[in-house]
Structure formats: C-alpha cells, structure tokens
Design a protein around this nucleic acid. Structure first.
Lengths: 262, 262
DNA sequence: ACCTGAACACCGTTCAAGT
DNA sequence: ACCTGAACACCGTTCAAGT
C-alpha cells in the first residue's frame, strides 16, 4: 500500500561497492558491533536458502547468522526481493566461473551445451531460485553475462539475429523450467532427510500405478522409466532435442547431429 | 517448526467432493452466515492472484471476497500451499478443456505443438503459477492429465519409452520455464498500468545499449530484435526448435520439418 | 457439517538512537 | 558511514465457540 519513493537508505548504497569485502570483523576493535559487507550478506543468504529453502530465509535468521541486528541488513539491501535477486545472481557467478574456459572450441553448439549443463548443475538442490533469474537488470549483471556468453556462440552460427535471440532465450528458459519442475519434486521430508529419495520415488511410482489405466495410458506406459530415470540425464535429453533443432536450423553440414543417442 | 501430522480438519475433506458447487449462498435463509465450496474458494483465489499477484493472495482478502471469516477457508484447504497448488491446477483445467479436441490428427508432433501453445497461453499474465505446477499428485490431477494427453501423442512416434518420457518432460519444462522467465519481465509498475509495456521495453532497451559493447557484444547485436520481439512468437520459435529435434529423433520421413521458418 | 473471529506466533520494514 | 533493536502493520494458522 505504501508507495516506494526510492528514498530508502539502501538506494544510496552504490552497487559499485559490491566489490569491497571486509571479512567477518574479527579484528582488534569490534566485539560488540558487527560489521558486514554486501557479499557476506548475500553469501549467508544463499547458505540459509540452501539449508532450509525460501521460507527459511528470514531477516531475523540472517541477522543472527551474521551476528548483528535485523536493521543492518537494510543498509546493503532495500528489500527481501532484492536480497533474493542478489542471491540468485550470485549463483550465476559460479556458473560464469565454470564456463569461463568455453568459447574456444570449433563447435558452437557443443559449447552452448556445456554452458547449459553448467547452469543446470548450479540449480540442482536449489529449488528456491527458479523464479529469480533475470529479475532486474540493475542488480543482476551475471545473468546478462551468461546470456551474452551463450549468445556469442550462437553468433557463430548461420542464423538471423532474430533466430539467434530466440535460440538463447529458448535454452535459458528450458534450464529454468527444469529447475522449477525439479524444485517441487521432493515435497519436504526428502529435503530434511527423513525419507530418502528412493522411497519417495517408489511411493510416487505406486501412486501412478494406482491410477486408472484407461484414463492414464501413457503414465502406465512409462512408469518403470520414471522409477529408473536420472534427473540430470533427462535434462540432457531434452537439451539435446532443442540443440538438434538448432543445428538443423543452422543448416549444419559440418558436425553430425548429436541427439537421438541415449 | 511444527510437524504436520496430517490431522487438520481439511484432511478430512474428501477430494471427491470437488464436484459439488453450491453458489454464492444468496438463497432464502442465509444472510449472516456465508456458505462456500471448494470451487468457489479456488476460483476466487485465482481471481485474486491474477489481479494482484502472489502477495495479493491473503487469507483475509480471500475471506473478505467470499464474504466470510478467515477460518472457514481452512475447511476446504489445509494450508496456503495447498491453495496455491489447487489454483495452479485449476488453470490446467482450462488447458485441458481447450485441448480436448486434439488427438485425432495424423501428425502427433503438430498435436503436441497445439497442446504446448494452449498451455503457454494459459500462463500469459499469470506470473504467479510458474512454481506450482505438478506440485503434489494428490491434489493436482489436471497436471497429470495434461502430461498423459501429451504422452499419448508421443506414443505414436517411433521412440523408446525412455525417449517418450524425456520428450514430454522436456516440452512441459520448456513451457514452465518460459512462464517463469516472463513472470519477472514487467517489474510492477507495468502490471499496475502505471507504466505501459512499450515504455518498459524501451527503457530496458536503453539499459542494454548503455552496456559496454566489448563486454556484451551479443546483447548489442540483438538489441533491436529485443525491442521488436513478441513473447508468444518467441515461445513458438523455441518450441519449434525442440519439436524439430523430436521429429528428427523419431526419424520422421512423413512430414517436412517445421522449424526454421520465421 | 460447516462457519466465526479472537488470539498467537512470526515476519518484513521503519526509524530514532547510537557509534 | 554503518549498526541496533524496539515498534508497527500484517500475515498464516489454530481453536473454542457457535449454528
């Protein structure tokens, strides 16, 4: 209900300050007063998110972990939304680091494949970030960098600009979609380790088997595949479908089509 | 913190009761006491979600719209999470209705394309549901039905069960991913109609242009495409890449490949 | 069987006050 | 320039009480 006039203290915090870093404040003077940094705040937020999901990220819990008061977080971040954006973006920083070596190979599509897989791997076990990629350009430069890095590969293909733009968007969307889908796979007990993954898959398998065969012929048809499947493999299978289509569109004659194998 | 023992009153509500429907309670007797139904609760929740997004869905706001007390919602639904699951599933009911006529055509992949587009169209303007599809099998039968319907088309292709399973999962994930991506496109002002879509796109275009060309060569390369692109078209372009790959995998010789057109 | 509304625990955000 | 913590408004959920 209150209109945001952009005058909160955090809006005075220059984003360029993001590269400072001060450490834990275990120095000589401070014992009572805590001292943070943007990176420390975001890093601790990611840790909290990974441990207990989105509902686990609380300003109070975060402040406790940082050893300070609730209010001080607002010096670095103007809202919980911005905190989540920065957390998601910091995950993409890892992806960028792991795909830094790419771009030299002679097959652009193979490079895109590697980037997408690295992106996927960063989302495994992080159901919370599905919805926060590319939220705001201002705070999320890493998302744009990954987008651009993938785009540079696509530029090497014989495609129109529109086709290049669409291709990168499609691959990114697919990765996000798989991440979002997998996010809700294990409902809670699995995350906490109360029920192991195998038991969860088995009980879902039984649920599928209990459905009427006439109403759900396909689910019955693939129920064993479901029980035996590996998420990462399935991700790659779908990615390869998309990349095979891209290769076709680019009129590839150099490399053989890569999908349709496993 | 409290462990859910599954003993809440809502767990006694049989899901089979979902097909009752009682109306608004504008009858002869009731003037003080409100009377609801599962469908009314979910329908009003969807309306609230569409109007003001996920933060707009509040038990108090929902109760006010239904003309009753907060507590009564818990008779139909055991938590906000379940309410969101049912809301997402009710959107899928529309998709099912709109794809009911499909399945008779001679090109299975074209049918899949229609289903995916119908699914996509249902997500337009609903950034809230990206994360709630296929959450829980028990409450979300429509998701499984759509999955199965698409699967029945894939069964007609010459593929292994694993390939069929992977293909349906890939298409579904892609749709969800596009929905999630588009979810955060307009940051707030656009939703509220304060700033129109065109102005938002233009300002983002300018933001891209302001980036260093050496750091973001691809973004500069496609900046005009971005300003001119249509979301639905871009969705179809990516879908067609994936389906072209699928057609290739199925060893299609009957129909010509459909991607690589616009 | 279903609805009510006060009460509880908790959360994001603000702000006057400190250093 | 940055940290503190009480205070505020609001939210999901519970529950004894009603019909």
């Amino acid at each position: 209900m209150t209109t945001d006039d952009g005058m909160s203290p955090a809006s005075q915090t220059p984003a360029s300050r993001a590269g400072r870093g001060r450490g834990g404040g275990r120095g000589a003077a401070g014992r009572q007063r805590a001292s943070h940094s943007l990176e420390a705040v975001v890093a601790e937020a990611v840790a909290l998110l990974d441990e207990s999901g989105e509902p686990g990220l609380t300003f109070r819990a975060l402040a406790a972990r940082l050893g300070g008061g609730v209010g001080s977080i607002y010096w670095y971040v103007s809202s919980k939304d911005e905190l989540l954006e920065r957390a998601a973006d910091s995950v993409l920083a890892d992806v960028l680091a792991k795909t830094d070596h790419l771009g030299a190979g002679d097959d652009p599509i193979a490079e895109i494949r590697e980037m997408a897989i690295a992106f996927y791997e960063a989302t495994v076990g992080r159901p919370w970030l599905g919805a926060y990629f590319l939220q705001d350009t201002g705070t999320q430069t890493n998302g744009l960098m990954l987008y651009d890095r993938m785009g540079r590969e696509v530029m090497r293909l014989d495609l129109t600009r529109r086709q290049q733009f669409d291709a990168v968007s499609a691959v990114m969307a697919y990765v996000v979609g798989v991440a979002a889908d997998r996010g809700q796979d294990p409902p809670q007990e699995v995350r906490d380790g109360i029920v192991d993954r195998g038991a969860f898959v088995a009980s879902f398998r039984d649920e599928l088997r209990a459905l009427d065969v006439d109403d759900f012929p396909f689910l019955h048809h693939i129920v064993d595949e479901f029980a035996a499947h590996d998420d990462a493999e399935q991700f790659r299978a779908g990615l390869d479908l998309m990349l095979a289509g891209l290769r076709l569109q680019a009129g590839s004659s150099s490399a053989d089509t890569r999908a349709a194998s496993d």
